[in-house]
């Protein structure tokens, strides 16, 4: 019995030591992940932590932060703290969804382009064309034509990001397909889907995860810019971009309406970028050397 207890103690200690060692070795991953986790918790618990972000209270309009209102109020007397916390939902939703959508389509197209020359020639010309259009411009054009909704914003932000993912995946596939083990797989009669999914796909994952974090960060900024310009999520949704956009006219009198959502947006994007840098260094030492 005693021996067992001792053993579990040893295991627990070594686990704790291992966590500490991991944190020491990868401080950026840990800091980025913790900050992002904090934002996710805020997003999930926003309704429990704050009053209704849409509730108007004209008597308490443009209240300075403090005075019972942590982040002050806006021009309609709405609680900026509530609106800022609720804004994290849209930002994270758009960022994570855009990363998932562009990664999925970029991976599929990139795998096929790397393996089929005809498909590659046609698709890569198309991708070059899309990459020539500034992504913000393309996204606002798409949103303005289809009408604003969160789904449309996600699609509009994802489309300009797809070519970047395609290029990355394609370049990995072009290197990997010449490796002896792929040749070996072909020689034992493995079919194309097997080669792509079992032998090539796993090699693309490390750079792909890193790229996905950068897409997520840039998608969150683009979403805020779209809302800021009036071509993003519908104005009744308290996204950070919408809150900042509404606060513009009162900027000189009530800068806090812009300041707090701005700081939250920056922290969230920073968290994702730090996490991305950490993952890049940890997952792929080759890219890390090039980028460092």
């Amino acid at each position: 019995m005693d021996a067992m207890a001792d053993e579990s103690l040893v295991v627990r200690e070594s686990l704790g030591a291992r966590v500490r060692q991991y944190c020491r070795r990868n401080p950026t991953i840990v800091i980025g992940a913790l900050l992002l986790l904090m934002m996710l918790i805020i997003a999930l618990l926003a309704s429990y932590l704050t009053p209704d972000p849409m509730k108007l209270n004209p008597i308490k309009r443009l209240r300075v932060p403090g005075e019972g209102m942590l982040f002050g109020t806006d021009m309609y007397g709405r609680d900026v703290f509530a609106r800022t916390l609720h804004g994290s939902r849209i930002s994270l939703l758009v960022g994570l969804s855009a990363a998932a959508v562009s990664t999925f389509f970029g991976l599929t197209i990139g795998l096929l382009a790397g393996y089929n020359r005809l498909f590659d020639t046609i698709v890569m010309r198309f991708m070059d064309g899309i990459m020539a259009i500034p992504s913000i411009l393309l996204a606002i054009a798409l949103v303005s034509l289809t009408g604003a909704s969160v789904g449309i914003v996600i699609v509009a932000i994802s489309i300009p990001e797809i070519p970047r993912v395609v290029r990355l995946v394609r370049s990995v596939v072009l290197t990997i397909r010449e490796q002896p083990y792929v040749e070996a797989a072909i020689s034992v009669g493995a079919r194309l889907p097997t080669i792509l999914l079992r032998h090539i796909l796993p090699n693309t994952l490390a750079p792909l995860i890193v790229q996905a974090t950068y897409v997520c960060a840039s998608a969150m900024i683009t979403e805020a810019i779209l809302s800021f310009l009036g071509a993003g999520t519908p104005p009744d949704i308290p996204s950070w971009g919408n809150v900042i956009s509404e606060g513009r006219q009162y900027f000189q009198r009530a800068p806090w309406i812009i300041f707090f959502p701005g700081v939250f947006l920056t922290i969230t994007v920073l968290a994702v970028n730090i996490l991305g840098d950490g993952l890049r260094d940890g997952l792929d030492p080759r890219i890390a050397r090039q980028m460092r």
Partner: peptide, 8 residues
């Protein structure tokens, strides 16, 4: 520089 949006 990458993380702070232009309008901020």
């Amino acid at each position: 520089g990458f993380s702070v949006p232009i309008f901020i």
